[in-house]
């Protein structure tokens, strides 16, 4: 009889529902707490980087090694990609410009689009893949194999030695790589223009740079420093905070690429908005 009592049934249903709701609330609260803890962790990491950057014992030798690793070793990849972007952009744009009788605008259009947007963003995304994942994997494996702990017990500050050097090297080298990619992109564009036309090297370059103004180049250079810093910080943060198992090395590398790429696009969006307001 008790089982069929509608009051008891309703009471039981209400208890089960309220239990479900409170479980969900607790789960959401835990998620929120974890998220806040992660955010606090990132800010703590950034403050440690900032503090160690201005410490007296800067690891200059390691900084130069990282500049070589980030700058020189990424050069071949950036060269190929930069030249191909310029070439493809020219081949794709030329027919449209021919239809409008504006083919003489081609060098300027390619140069401006490469310098303002395509060069910085594509180069930064490539660097997020190569450099960000490299940092994530290297520091992650150092963490797993206790090399970071070994550094700490031998009285060396791992943030200063491993992180600060990598972040500064990325912040300084990635803008240089972007400028190099821009130059090679314009060179690739000249090759593209000569596949179906005949333009001299000097004429093409003078037309290209005739359309580029200071306010095209300056914001692009400034934002490229931010791209470098974002890639360096994210790569190091993910690697330095990797878990203990070998699986976490892959996770660190992968999440470093994903987050760095996402942040590059977000920084670009903010930079474009700021530039637009200033101009």
């Amino acid at each position: 009889m008790k089982e069929n009592n509608p009051v008891l049934k309703a009471k039981g249903f209400a208890t089960r529902q309220s239990l479900r709701i409170s479980e969900k609330t607790i789960a959401k609260k835990t998620d929120a707490n974890n998220y806040l803890a992660d955010v606090a962790d990132v800010f703590l990491f950034l403050s440690r980087i900032f503090k160690e950057t201005f410490s007296r014992d800067f690891e200059f030798k390691e900084f130069l090694r990282q500049c070589f690793q980030i700058g020189y070793k990424t050069l071949p990849l950036i060269s190929i990609i930069g030249a191909i972007i310029g070439l493809v952009l020219t081949i794709q744009s030329r027919p449209v410009l021919v239809n409008f009788g504006a083919v003489t605008m081609l060098p300027g259009m390619v140069a401006v689009s490469l310098i303002r947007e395509m060069g910085p963003v594509i180069t930064a995304l490539i660097c997020a893949g190569k450099i960000g994942s490299g940092m994530g994997a290297e520091l992650g494996s150092m963490k797993v194999t206790e090399q970071i702990d070994a550094m700490e017990v031998s009285s060396t500050n791992p943030i200063r030695f491993l992180v600060v050097t990598r972040v500064i090297a990325a912040t300084l080298m990635i803008p240089l790589l972007i400028l190099y990619a821009d130059a090679l992109g314009i060179f690739g564009s000249w090759i593209g223009a000569n596949i179906k036309g005949d333009v001299s090297f000097v004429l093409f370059f003078s037309q290209a740079f005739g359309h580029v103004h200071f306010m095209d180049l300056f914001p692009a250079v400034i934002k490229s420093f931010f791209f470098g810093a974002v890639i360096g910080v994210v790569g190091c943060y993910k690697g330095y905070n990797a878990g203990r198992g070998t699986e976490s090395v892959g996770v660190a590398a992968n999440s470093a690429v994903v987050l760095a790429s996402l942040l590059v696009i977000i920084v670009d969006m903010i930079a474009v908005q700021i530039t637009d307001m200033l101009m």
Binding site: S141, M142, T145, E146, Q147, D149, A150, M151, V153
Partner: peptide
């Protein structure tokens, strides 16, 4: 401190 894995810098 001698670590279990050696922890030599690769």
């Amino acid at each position: 401190f001698l670590f279990q894995s050696g922890a030599l810098y690769d």
